[in-house]
Design a protein around this nucleic acid. Structure first.
Lengths: 196, 196
DNA sequence: ACGGTTCTTGACCGCCCAGTCAAGAACTCC
DNA sequence: GGAGTTCTTGACTGGGCGGTCAAGAACCGT
């Protein structure tokens, strides 16, 4: 598509994306219909297809924006830190802070994981995030700060902990983001046996 | 529904559930239609509705069976062990072994997590599994085997690691189940700083 | 005030969906 | 072989879906 948009057009587009995000987050991709989205904004169906090629493209757009935004926040958080372990920790905390603010986008990422059509797009973004962590792990291993283990495994394990505790404690139980981040960091660093 | 079924009927029912499981696992819940399921078995649509009330009920049935089966396998694996930490480890390994054999069912569980209609049923099963782990963690804390942390947090963290590494390494990368289990256990016990 | 562009409308299209049902086939038991 | 039950068929219904499009409204720059 890629139309030339006026300010008014940009606003409509943003409005569509915002509302669609909330509907997708609440019900999932398939149960959310285009008719529902436009009805929710009180506009005709043609508006949707003026700004987006398809429902699928809209979803991918939202997904891409969310991943980009999250990554930027993480980068900003660690830019001033040199210690690789602290970088990992700050990355986790930045991710948790982002998840607290962007619940809907976080849910969308979950949905994307279970839809074949979005799996690839999602994986691309996630691979980038994991690669960042892997870099820090390798550095830490080289410095003798942590024991020598497969960095990919460790990175994915940390992602798993973070994602799961975010869902369970931040979203479902309503804990404070900072507390959940503390728990994630503590578990990732020491497991259950360590002295952390 | 709950019909009185002959052996022939039982077989058909199993056949439907098995085929539906593979389709659901491959495409997800919504994209899999009842017509597709019956067509795949070469039978008329009425057959489906003779054995099940609805597509949703079928999915819930499959989900329930899977969770029950997984839990039974875990219980069997730890029944002879008294050390709580070893029980946790054996539970993880049993879960990984189950996931290796039941890829489709594992995927279904993932899908269930992103569908409001199945979230509750899923959570019920998962809470039971977590409660088991929590019990062992509490016991281990009481025995002074591990440091004193919130058992719920630790249990969920381990579930998160296990689920994520299963997906990433067992399913996507095709690693051996035993190796993945080793990685999960090692990370859960020692984190990245421990001497594991 | 006019011509060009951007944006909006909502009826409409073809398609596929979950679910129904009257009819009949296949078993079972006597 | 007949009566009763279990199982199967597949056309059909009603409805919602994603997406289209001709028509027109709103907003330019000049």
């Amino acid at each position: 598509m890629t139309r030339r948009l006026t300010q008014r057009g940009q606003d409509r587009r943003d409005q569509l994306m915002a509302f669609a995000t909330s509907r997708f987050a609440e019900q999932g991709y398939h149960p959310t219909s285009v008719s529902e989205i436009v009805a929710g904004l009180g506009v005709g169906k043609g508006v949707f297809y003026w700004y987006f090629d398809s429902k699928e493209q809209l979803f991918l757009e939202i997904l891409r924006e969310a991943q980009t935004d999250l990554r930027r926040k993480q980068q900003q958080a660690i830019v001033d830190e040199t210690d690789p372990i602290r970088r990992i920790e700050l990355g986790i905390r930045a991710s948790m802070a982002w998840s607290e603010v962007h619940r809907d986008h976080n849910k969308l990422i979950q949905f994307a994981a279970t839809e074949a059509a979005f799996g690839e797009a999602l994986r691309r973004g996630q691979d980038i995030a994991v690669a960042d962590v892997v870099k820090h792990v390798k550095e830490a291993v080289a410095l003798g700060l942590i024991r020598d283990t497969d960095p990919d495994v460790v990175a994915h394990a940390m992602v798993g902990v973070s994602a799961h505790l975010t869902r369970t404690f931040l979203y479902e139980r309503g804990d404070r983001a900072e507390d959940v981040a503390d728990a994630v960091v503590s578990f990732c660093l020491h497991g259950i046996l360590g002295q952390g």
